[in-house]
Structure formats: C-alpha cells, structure tokens
Computed example of a mutant assay.
Amino acid sequence: MKKKLMTLVLCAGLTFAAPFGCLAAEEAPAEAAGEETPAETESAAAEAAEVGAYGITDAQQEALVESVKTSVKEGFLDLYQIAETDFQLTPYSMEDAANYEQDGTYTGEDPYESARMWQAIEDAILEADDIGVFMNTALAVGMDRTELADMIVEMKDPAFEEDMDTQAHKNGHWYDTITGEKYDLANSIYTGIAKYLNGLSSEERAQVLAGLYDTFVGANEDVQDVNGNYLSTLTLFDKVICENIQF
C-alpha cells in the first residue's frame, strides 16, 4: 500500500512539474540568444536619437551628407569631369571673406571662393519662406533650439526650391558674382540640401534647421565684411558637410 501511495505521489509530482519544465526550456533559448528587453530597446533608440556635435542626430547627419554627395557628383563632378579624388570642399571662413575688394574682386587663393559660395547657399536656405527672419528673431529673444523648431512648425513650413536660380531674383548680392564652375558647385550643394530637407516631415525639418542654426550660427558673434555687411562666422550647413563628405 505504501509503495502504491509513493508511486502516485511521484507521478503527480512529475505531472505537475512537467509544464513548468517545458516553459523553462522554451524560455532558455531566448535568454541564451541575448534578446533585448523592451527597456534595453527603448534605451538604445533614445541613445541613437541623441543630438550630436552638429546639432542633429547621427542618422540625420548621414542622410544629409549622402544627399549632398549624390547631388555634387551628378551636378558638378560629372559635369566638369573632375575626379572624386581631386575634389575637396572648403568650409566658409571669415579669413577668406576678407579677400574681397569693395568692387567684389576676389584676391584670395581658394579656387571655389568658398566664402562667397557658402554665403550664397545660406542666403538661398534662409530665404525659403523668409525662414531666416524667424531664426534671427529667435536669437534676439534667446530662444533655444526646441522653441525655435516649434516656432518654425507653427508659423511657416518652409519649402525649398531645388535650384538656386529661383532664389537669385530675391537677393542678387552674392548670386550675381558667382558664375560658371563656382555657381554649379554651389547650386549642386544647395540642391542636395534642399532635397534632403524637403523629404522630411515638418517637425523633422524644423528640428534640423533649428539644431544646425543654433550650433553654427547662434553660438557665434556676427562680424562685418569689407562692405560693412554683417555676416555670420559660420554658415548653416557648411561645417557638417565639409567635415563629413568623402567620395
């Protein structure tokens, strides 16, 4: 009788434990495979979306640079049959901006006249639906990049013409002195920027504009050129592109 009772108890115990043994066996491979928990996934996503040194995320930076690379290759390098290894973009600098005479004659050594070229690109960007007015106003009242982005979305949703010719009629100060090869380079850079920005949602576009503006323009004092015009020491997109574009 005792043997029968013991046998029943053991059988019952095995029957009760079996489902849990199966569950443990099913869960073990998942844990062994190193699957991320929801908390880990959320943390990784937040880290990936962090703003970097240029005021935008790594993903935004990569997409912007790739758009410009494609446009520069098609609209400039291929057009003038320039080898990719022979090409290097030069960032805007006030030192080069000082190499212009009162009549606009360039006396420096930069073949692309980068100071003038980048200023033309910035003019085209900031003139899109007068977005530059909003940005300059934001700086004057001490807005941070989040507030500036909100203002851009609420007040106007800038659409960027994908050719500087359409902007040239608004402001001829820089455009009328950029011709031939230099213009085609500036135009291809601007086109790449415009295509990237136009492919974003309103909120994403505003965040990119505000982040770059706050980082490269808002943090620097304005200085005067030879004609007494105030120019920012860094333009809106030149640094992130020049420091990262590689063919």
Rank of each mutant, 00 (worst) to 15 (best):
E42S: 02
E42H: 02
E42L: 03
E42M: 03
S43Y: 09
S43D: 09
A44F: 13
A44T: 06
A44E: 12
A45Q: 14
A45L: 15
A45C: 11
E47Q: 12
A48N: 11
A48Y: 11
A48E: 12
A49G: 04
A49Q: 13
A49N: 12
V51G: 02
V51S: 10
V51I: 14
G52K: 03
G52Y: 12
G52S: 06
A53E: 06
A53K: 01
Y54P: 00
Y54L: 02
Y54I: 00
Y54T: 00
G55Q: 06
G55D: 09
G55I: 07
I56R: 04
I56T: 03
I56C: 04
T57L: 14
T57S: 15
D58C: 00
D58I: 01
Q60L: 04
Q60H: 07
Q60E: 13
Q61A: 11
Q61E: 11
Q61W: 07
E62T: 10
A63R: 13
A63N: 11
L64Y: 13
V65H: 13
V65L: 11
V65F: 15
E66I: 09
S67Y: 13
S67I: 08
V68Q: 04
V68F: 14
K69M: 09
T70L: 10
T70E: 14
T70C: 06
S71M: 15
S71V: 14
S71D: 15
V72Q: 06
V72K: 08
V72W: 14
K73I: 14
E74S: 10
E74M: 07
E74H: 07
G75Y: 14
G75R: 14
G75P: 01
F76Y: 15
L77A: 11
D78G: 07
D78Y: 12
D78T: 08
D78I: 07
L79E: 14
L79G: 04
Y80V: 03
Y80T: 01
Y80W: 10
Q81E: 14
I82H: 06
A83H: 06
A83Y: 04
A83V: 05
E84V: 08
E84I: 05
T85E: 15
T85S: 15
T85F: 15
T85Q: 15
D86Y: 10
D86F: 10
F87Q: 01
F87V: 01
Q88Y: 12
L89E: 05
T90A: 12
T90M: 11
T90R: 10
Y92F: 14
S93W: 10
S93F: 12
M94W: 14
M94F: 15
E95G: 05
E95R: 00
E95S: 08
E95T: 00
E95A: 07
E95D: 07
D96L: 09
D96K: 08
A97H: 02
A97L: 06
A97K: 02
A98W: 01
A98P: 00
A98T: 00
N99D: 10
N99V: 01
N99F: 05
N99L: 07
Y100N: 01
E101P: 00
E101Q: 08
E101S: 01
E101W: 03
Q102E: 15
Q102H: 03
Q102P: 02
D103C: 02
G104N: 02
G104W: 11
T105S: 09
T105I: 02
Y106C: 02
G108M: 12
E109G: 08
E109D: 13
D110E: 06
D110T: 02
P111R: 09
P111H: 11
P111C: 08
Y112P: 03
E113K: 06
A115K: 07
